[in-house]
């Protein structure tokens, strides 16, 4: 790791001022992501501001909204009785993430801000448009088994690795931030950016802007939600594909549905057309297959990841059948 200055504060406004004043400044909470990126030379902040003393670790349900502070730990959110009962997809996504050690440490804000696991991004010896604009993307024609089939560009096909972000995208969560220009909120689905021609612009946050928390609306949908993660081994691994689904039925007819997908796109992927294929229709093998086809209609598979086109449809069918009570 290169040398850097370290600061700690219990005031969010001061943390923001400190980072905003230094172009090379960064926030640190759990540290489970930033320390690796610094060791690998992917990031080299010259100032690290420790936000663990900020009073931002709450998990509260009030007025129909679940409010989770940015420094709440993955483990504490996953195990919280209110989250388990009213937002099961969030708990399941978190419990399917990382390892117990990491979950006990890693924060909600840091989880959302984690970088792609693309091995070309993680290797500073390799070109990467995301890390070094204009240097090229070896994944397009290289080892791209883990890469995106939707939402990528000719400049980058990296996928976002957060399971939590996929669950939050399905539940229409809102991200709260504090920046040099004050407080604001933005939909979770606008936090991560598609690469287009500027893959180095990874999120919609400005320098010095810090996530202070997320809010999730309570609803019958959220209560009837699940997370399915498909990975190369049973535990402690990132998703090859994943699905967050929330579903309400009237009889066998889908009254409402939310779907979000991980492992297939550079950001948590919502598919309004797949949802549309199900809404106000009976939940049958036929409508589920239609939703799957709508999801992958515009897919651009690469040499090593074409299997994801089938796999994500099967994962969708599996979770919908589970949620619909067919198995």
């Amino acid at each position: 790791m290169k040398l850097f200055d370290y600061a700690r504060t219990a005031r969010a406004s001061e943390a923001v001022e400190l980072v905003a004043a230094r172009p090379g400044g960064a926030f640190i909470a759990g540290g489970t992501e930033l320390t690796n990126l610094m060791k690998d030379g992917v990031l080299a902040p010259d100032l690290v501001v420790d936000v663990n003393s900020l009073p931002l670790d709450h998990i509260t349900l009030r007025n129909g909204r679940l409010s989770i502070g940015a420094t709440a730990r993955m483990r504490d959110v996953a195990e919280h009785p209110v989250v388990r009962e009213h937002f099961p997809v969030v708990s399941e996504a978190l419990l399917a993430s990382a390892s117990p050690q990491v979950r006990g440490r890693a924060s909600v804000g840091g989880n959302l801000m984690q970088r792609t696991r693309c091995w070309y991004y993680r290797d500073p010896g390799s070109p990467c448009n995301r890390r070094e604009p204009g240097s090229g993307c070896p994944a397009l024609k290289g080892q791209n088994r883990w890469h995106a089939i939707l939402g990528g560009s000719d400049h980058c096909i990296a996928v976002h690795p957060s399971d939590l972000a996929v669950a939050l995208a399905a539940l229409d969560a809102v991200v709260l931030t504090l920046g040099p220009d004050g407080r604001r909120s933005l939909p979770l689905r606008d936090l991560h950016l598609l690469p287009g021609g500027t893959p180095h612009r990874e999120t919609g946050l400005r320098h010095g802007e810090m996530i202070t928390g997320v809010e999730i609306p309570q609803s019958p949908l959220a209560r009837h939600s699940r997370y399915l993660k498909v990975r190369d081994r049973a535990s402690f691994e990132f998703a090859v594909v994943s699905v967050a689904a929330a579903l309400t039925l009237k009889g066998r007819v889908v009254s409402d549905v939310r779907l979000a997908f991980g492992g297939i796109a550079p950001k948590p992927w919502r598919s309004p057309k797949a949802e549309q294929a199900l809404r106000n229709r009976p939940l049958t093998e036929v409508t589920i297959a239609m939703a799957g086809r709508a999801l992958v209609k515009d897919a651009t598979p690469r040499e090593h990841n074409a299997f994801k086109v089938d796999l994500v449809q099967r994962a969708l069918a599996d979770i919908l059948e589970t949620l619909g009570g067919k198995r």
């Binding site: 540290g31 489970t32 320390t35 690796n36 060791k39 690290v48 050690q101 990491v102 440490r105």
Partner: peptide, 25 residues
Amino acid sequence: RGECGACTVLVDGRRVKSCMTLAVM
């Protein structure tokens, strides 16, 4: 890099991979 767990210690009773946190924290 936090992948193997050989560095696991308890911090205030909670298990942590000690390679992934700074001593000053």
